[in-house]
Design a protein around this nucleic acid. Sequence first.
DNA 1: TGAGTGAGTGCACTTGGTGCAATGACAGTC
DNA 2: GACTGTCATTGCACCAAGTGCACTCACTCA
Lengths: 185, 185
Amino acid sequence: MGRWEPNAVERLQYAAVALFLERGYAEVTVAEIAERAGLTKRTFFNHFTDKREVIFAGAAAFEADIVKHLTEVHADAKPLDAAVQALTRGGLDLTRYGEAACARRQVIASSPELQERELIKMAALARVIAKKLEDRLVPGRIALFSAQAAIAVFTAAYDAWIDDITADFATLMRQSLADMHLAIS
Amino acid sequence: MGRWEPNAVERLQYAAVALFLERGYAEVTVAEIAERAGLTKRTFFNHFTDKREVIFAGAAAFEADIVKHLTEVHADAKPLDAAVQALTRGGLDLTRYGEAACARRQVIASSPELQERELIKMAALARVIAKKLEDRLVPGRIALFSAQAAIAVFTAAYDAWIDDITADFATLMRQSLADMHLAIS
DNA sequence: TGAGTGAGTGCACTTGGTGCAATGACAGTC
DNA sequence: GACTGTCATTGCACCAAGTGCACTCACTCA
């Protein structure tokens, strides 16, 4: 593979997921990922700030997608409902990448280091959602609680969807939200 | 300081917090922490699995404390109320260590790495609480949502208490819980 | 007094991660 | 066709986190 093959980032992500599935996150070195992608360790760190990040490169796009959906939700929706609607639409966008999503989820589930990173990405997403809710004049703490609850609803629904990839994601979200209401009531 | 001075773990924790406050988490090496504690880097890693963990050594005790309080909550309390009561009592136990808690919080707030670790500790605590709620015959997903909501309530109240260490923690928890109910309703 | 225990140590090693200078494929310009 | 600039990629040296293993040595107890 020549020095100037295109799509270095995609090749690194693909190689990383494949190797993590084969041998487990901790057993794979960055040098091995880079080698499989026909690149070097130095190039890996030009594209990703650390080893975990190769799995979370899509998070920024997902966050942007959620924010876009959130701006399109009817202005007088209650904050929790607004956040849940945006996450439902964002989740539906994700369901296009079914098999890749499963592989990714499996890798994350196998490594505490990756779970840490996922939690902080979700926490950051919650803060962004909360900020957008504040733009709708929702008080700060109510906005944050709504966003956090919506993220919890989304995470539960997404896990359920990974368990049965043929299920309808919007339905899973409705069920998850109903359970959240039962839990808080 | 001789080789057999007692309280190696406490000395390492104390040295770590002091150095992190002085120069920031990332700028301090494990070797420096160990040196200030009169020990070596190797000994540090005999006591803590990694550099972050020196800040979270108390988490296991806190978790055990919460579980104990939870078992003492009246059996027919609603799951969210049960979890919130247990976390309120656990939080009150924490308020004894006021100044140390502030320093710790400040260190964590200054480092994304430490925030990641804190999030996973809280997520683990939520799972433990959820499991105990399931022992009360609360359905799995309701239990998890209740526990996560209670943790969110606790975190908000704890942050408020750090802002004003003279405030009554139980009152802050009540206010935080009320806001959570407003957010979900 | 001598064996055993266990906390602490020294050392070599792997791996994640960074700074810096060099390379070389490509585009555009004269 | 030579010249120039750009930028992804690379090589290299280096630091710090973390580990395995053998060793030391203060203390205990028979």
